[in-house]
């Protein structure tokens, strides 16, 4: 069954140019120049129940806008969306009870109070019964190792500790679907690792569908088999993570260790040099030129070592962003 199905989703923002000052505001009331920006253009995809899908793209690509439409915060300009069988922007209560949204940039925890108070708030809002809630919180705090932080005021906690509690707060009602918008932003490596393993554990345990955006490649590599890449509002790639480089199968990475200095121009005839440090050189060479290149290298150059490989995943994603 599809947890999420999106067909031809579009979002166009209209906004007005504004200048500072009262006079301009007054002028704006009368004549305003309307401008439009297409934040999301014709995006379609389906996500199966129980999957973890990475949603990637550079800043301003339209990820958060898409997530906001999937969670019903924003209305789309056009397109069809079904999330857990509901139309999200109708904002039915039954729908809201079944998903959760975590924004890494905006905390829902009450800063002046210990996190338990926010848990209680969510328990009431989502109508979770006391016993079930307690069991769940016990389990989650145990796993994330934050039991001792439950009674500390949130604003005294570190960023990593806060995010762990944030996750617990958003899981109190055992949602079937979670949107995670940059959950690891600004965290140290250990905390990132902990949060990743937790998401994995939760997904396996409860078969929860997860849609995650992150700028840390490691998050995506560890968690997602499938990624959707968008840029400037358009979908560029949808498939398994390890196949990203398949799109770039015609390009090989060649590492050379030379024993003498050589003119860059000579090498550049065969491909692009991406890195050169002293006698170490990395280049991208087109598959068709590879044969010729290796011939040239082995015959004309004095090399210590050569290594040919496919484009790594990270590099592939980066190329997509361009």
């Amino acid at each position: 069954m599809n947890a999420i199905s999106v067909k031809n989703l579009n979002k166009v923002f209209t906004y007005y140019e504004k200048k500072e000052g009262f006079q301009h505001s007054l002028k704006n009331l009368l004549v305003r120049k309307q401008k439009t920006k297409e934040a999301v253009k014709d995006i379609s995809f389906d996500i199966d129940s129980g999957d973890i899908v990475g949603f990637l793209g550079p800043n301003g690509a339209g990820k958060t806008t898409t997530l906001k439409m999937l969670s019903g915060i924003l209305y789309p300009t056009s397109g069809e969306v079904q999330v857990l069988g509901y139309c999200p922007w109708k904002r039915q209560k039954q729908f809201k009870m079944k998903y959760s949204m975590v924004l890494g940039q905006k905390s829902q925890l009450w800063p002046d109070l210990p996190a338990t108070e926010t848990f209680r708030l969510n328990q009431y809002i989502y109508e979770v019964d006391e016993k079930k809630c307690k069991m769940l919180v016990d389990e989650l705090t145990e796993y994330l190792d934050v039991k001792h932080l439950l009674h500390v005021q949130v604003r005294r906690l570190s960023l990593g500790e806060r995010m762990k509690l944030e996750l617990i707060a958003s899981l109190i009602h055992s949602p079937q679907l979670i949107f995670l918008d940059e959950p690891s932003i600004g965290l140290d490596l250990v905390s990132q690792q902990k949060i990743r393993s937790f998401i994995r554990y939760w997904n396996e345990q409860y078969k929860t569908t997860v849609m995650i955006t992150s700028h840390y490649m490691k998050d995506i590599e560890d968690l997602c088999e499938r990624v959707i890449v968008i840029n400037s509002g358009k979908k560029l790639y949808d498939g398994s993570l390890c196949d990203v480089n398949y799109m770039f199968k015609n390009i090989k990475i060649v590492n050379l260790e030379l024993s003498d200095e050589i003119d860059d121009m000579k090498l550049a005839e065969f491909g692009t040099i991406t890195k050169k440090e002293g006698l170490n050189c990395t280049m991208e060479v087109h598959k068709e030129d590879l044969h010729e290149f290796i011939g040239y290298v082995t015959e004309k150059l004095n090399i210590k070592d050569i290594n040919i490989s496919d484009i790594p995943v990270e590099k592939g994603i980066e190329l997509l962003y361009r």
Partner: peptide
């Protein structure tokens, strides 16, 4: 944004 997603 967060408030909108709550079933209340």
């Amino acid at each position: 944004d967060i408030a909108i997603t709550k079933p209340i």
